[in-house]
């Protein structure tokens, strides 16, 4: 089974990389850039028997730092 795990910064956590991207796009002349946030996409290949609790544990223990990040799991 293929999993897509999206790791994103929590709202309110300052994202200097996102800010730099926002400024760069504006600098390139694209109008209406109102914000940018940088996250990660992790693609995992796991056994079909892997249950939700295990996937959640993987996210909490390693893939996301829940002090600053949220995660969302998609089954591809």
């Amino acid at each position: 089974m293929k999993l897509r795990i999206y790791v994103t910064l929590k709202p309110g956590v300052l994202d200097p990389q996102g800010k730099a991207i926002e400024h760069a796009l504006t600098g390139l002349g694209f109008p209406g850039i109102e914000g940018a946030r940088v996250g990660k996409l992790i693609e995992l290949e796991v056994a079909d028997s892997t249950d939700d609790a295990q996937i959640d544990a993987m996210c909490r223990q390693l893939l996301a730092n829940t002090v600053i990040e949220n995660y969302r799991v998609e089954r591809a």
């Binding site: 300052l14 200097p16 990389q17």
Partner: peptide, 8 residues
């Protein structure tokens, strides 16, 4: 947590 420096 320690994040990317504000000035990058």
């Amino acid at each position: 947590a320690l994040m990317r420096n504000a000035g990058l």
